[in-house]
Design a protein around this nucleic acid. Structure first.
Length: 672
RNA sequence: UGGCCUAUGGUGUAACUGGUAACACGUCAGUUUUUGGUACUGAAGAGUCUAGGUUCGAGACCUAGUGGGCCAACCA
């Protein structure tokens, strides 16, 4: 129960080990370093949660650092949005920093590196340099400028900085090793000429440092103890360390601690994408209303949709941290927001798909204001009044003329409770020319103690307020839209991801404010959208309630069968021989009937394997009887299909006959 | 023809320096219920990718294989 019993993730293990090895706890310092070139998304909340979470756990400072070294892509708008999102999540950064704060210091160090013979000016085109770089499997070759004199390098670098060079004319690169197995170590670029206005440094600079040179040294300047980033930066670590060691040589008095980069797997969510570039495309092509469209996986989108900071933090916490690729099921995110809103949201009644219901024995013109509980989860939530009258709206789905015993809602002749009101009985219906029910006529009873199976929500027609409700579906139809080599993620766009509904809500909602959150009873959680006005209320459906009725309900579930589709391909993906092998692991421990089934499966699978697949298993260790048995069974199938016995087969069988495992002996005998 | 990372129920994470798998979501069933919600109780579901090795003992350590990911932007 207590926090200390919770097991540590691998990053915490690393930190604990460092502390045990003498790192002082007050030296711990982390950072979250976004590039201000887009909005933060749910994937970033993992990185944020890790670094800020560690900060909270160890009471260590966490800087928010904008990695702003590419003026071509970065904008103040993004800086502001990022700050808003991080604050909204409830995290407090120790200091707001910018990589651009360090341009001068970085430049000074670059000169020292040149003087050390560790960096040089290259003056070739990017294309020829790329060619000289080789490929992951082929080493690179040295370029013609690699051995320029230090003086010449210094002079050219100064000219670059002075604005005397054009973009692409010269660059500064580190002198490491063009034959290095790690491509990043093949004389990486440190500076390029970029005659662009920077959102903070204006036109002060016309050379800008590259990521590898900037990022590590920014960590170093800020004396970050653990620099945590996602897995794709793993290859950069070697370079990170190389730069760090060079600079530490000049600056160890000023900056004693050398940071340590460690990498974790980024978060992926099913049915959405996590790439700023691709999200930008959705925005630019108008497929969503903006970065904060409620369907977007951005923090601002989730916020507008009605997700709370607590729910997102809980989500990130439950997801955990490790180093393997993952796709997290959206149902976990949905669980987190339901759990949070269940405690907080007040219950109200709203009818999204109305049908008129008339209570024939309720006097015309009469109205009553009935007491309704705001939340059964929170006693302090109190009560409100809801108006009741002769004519109501209820959900179309809640009525059927005839229905099976599993249908707890209203049917002709059946009784049902109206939430917060009376028990009614359906007596008759009115139909239009096409035979559609347009009105349900009921009688009511004031005996509310009576037990009935169903309870319906409703709204008094006379008092109800019209409201716009936006119902969202997932943005993509594929579980992993950007993981297909042969298909573009845009092909999986769900064209029906937004449904606008004209709904009727109870009058207490008249003064709901933007951002207010409610549970529309029996339907789900909804919040008041930014577009809402007092004249035209707009609600977003944050998430539906868990709905066990939907699972029982026959057919008509059109697009909710994704769950089944997944299992098949996963199994089919394993080759027959692998499936057979996995039977082998447990074969000798199975119950008789299970074993019969398994054997039949194995015989089936064995028909599609080759002898070459099987032969290596002849050498299986004696103690692994199961594997040897399944091998024997499979071998039998191959022999039946015309395979000739050879030396290896005979040896395998002979050896098996002497085994102490009876099952194996039986199978071996069968092959004689 | 390379290097690095990774492999545990449907999903995600655990298992302290080796002692035969736990938690959450999801699924199923029951109880409660003026929400087919919530809460509570219970169940099913993996023997840890494969093979070999070290060991009294391996999910953990070693080797090889297989699957997945990353690495050749004057992006970060």
């Amino acid at each position: 129960m207590s926090a200390e019993t919770k097991s540590l993730n691998f990053l915490e293990h690393i930190i604990e080990e460092d502390l045990a090895n003498g790192l002082s706890k007050d030296k711990l310092r982390f950072r979250f370093p976004p590039e201000p070139n887009g909005y933060l998304h749910i994937g970033h909340t993992k990185a944020i949660g890790i670094s800020f979470g560690l900060g909270e756990k160890y009471n260590a400072p966490v800087n928010l650092r904008f990695d702003d070294t590419n003026p071509a892509k970065e904008e103040q708008e993004y800086v502001d949005a990022i700050k808003e999102d991080v604050s909204w999540l409830g995290y407090k950064w120790a200091e707001e920093r910018y990589s651009s704060d360090y341009f001068q210091e970085l430049y000074d160090w670059a000169i020292l590196l040149i003087k050390d013979g560790k960096a040089y000016i290259d003056s070739q085109s990017s294309k020829t340099m790329a060619e000289q770089k080789g490929t992951p499997t082929q080493p690179g070759v040295d370029g013609p400028y690699r051995n320029r004199t230090i003086d010449e390098n210094l002079e050219l670098f100064a000219k670059m900085k002075a604005g005397e060079c054009n973009e692409g004319e010269h660059i500064l690169r580190a002198k490491i090793d063009m034959q290095h197995v790690n491509m990043l170590m093949r004389d990486p670029l440190m500076y390029r000429v970029l005659k662009k206005h920077h959102h903070r440094t204006g036109n002060d600079w016309c050379i800008y440092p590259m990521y590898d040179w900037t990022h590590g040294e920014s960590d170093y300047i800020e004396q970050i103890s653990h620099s945590l980033c996602s897995l794709e930066f793993k290859p950069h670590r070697e370079l990170y360390d190389w730069f760090k060691e060079q600079v530490h040589g000049f600056a160890k008095n000023k900056y004693p601690m050398q940071p340590k980069q460690r990498e974790f797997a980024r978060l992926n969510l099913s049915y959405t994408i996590m790439s700023k570039r691709k999200l930008l495309k959705l925005v630019e092509e108008g497929l969503v209303s903006g970065w904060n469209d409620p369907r977007m996986p951005t923090i601002s989108g989730l916020r507008r949709r009605g997700y709370t900071p607590q729910s997102i933090r809980k989500f990130v916490e439950t997801v955990g941290v490790a180093k393997r690729e993952n796709i997290i099921d959206v149902s976990l995110l949905e669980f987190c927001i339901r759990e949070d809103l269940n405690k907080k949201a007040h219950r109200v009644m709203a009818v999204l798909n109305p049908i008129k219901l008339v209570i024939t024995n309720y006097p015309e013109g009469k109205e009553e204001w009935l007491e309704a509980e705001n939340s059964q989860e929170d006693e302090s939530a109190g009560f409100r009044k809801v108006p009741f009258s002769r004519e109501l709206y209820v959900e179309k789905e809640d009525f059927k003329e005839e229905a099976g015993s599993k249908f707890f809602r209203l049917r002709l002749g059946g009784e049902v409770r109206l939430k917060n009101a009376y028990i009614i009985k359906a007596e008759s219906v009115v139909k239009d020319a096409q035979g559609n029910v347009t009105e349900i006529h009921c009688t009511y009873s004031t005996d509310t103690e009576k037990k009935v199976k169903g309870t319906l929500h409703w709204v008094s027609i006379k008092h109800a307020i019209k409201a716009e409700v936006r119902d969202y579906d997932r943005l993509f139809t594929d579980e992993a839209p950007d993981s297909h080599a042969d298909k573009d993620f845009m092909e999986f766009i769900n064209s029906k991801s937004l449904k606008t509904i004209e709904a009727f809500v109870e009058p207490s909602l008249a003064d709901a404010k933007i951002g207010d959150q409610f549970q529309f009873q029996r339907l789900g959680y909804f919040n008041v959208d930014d577009d809402s006005t007092s004249k035209n209320l707009v609600f977003n459906k944050t998430v539906g309630l868990r709905d066990s009725w939907a699972k029982v309900k026959p057919k008509e579930n059109t697009n909710n069968q994704q769950g089944n589709n997944q299992k098949q391909p996963q199994q089919n993906k394993r080759s027959a021989i692998d499936q057979i092998k996995s039977y082998g692991k447990k074969y000798d421990r199975m119950q008789d009937d299970q074993r019969e089934k398994a054997k039949a499966e194995i015989i089936e699978l064995a028909k599609s394997i080759a002898y070459e697949d099987l032969e290596p298993l002849f050498g299986t260790a004696v103690k692994k009887a199961g594997t040897r048995i399944i091998t024997m069974i499979s071998l039998g199938v191959l022999l039946d299909n015309g395979l000739d016995k050879n030396e290896a087969i005979n040896n395998f069988i002979t050896k098996a006959l002497e085994d102490k495992n009876e099952l194996l002996v039986v199978e071996a005998n069968a092959l004689l």
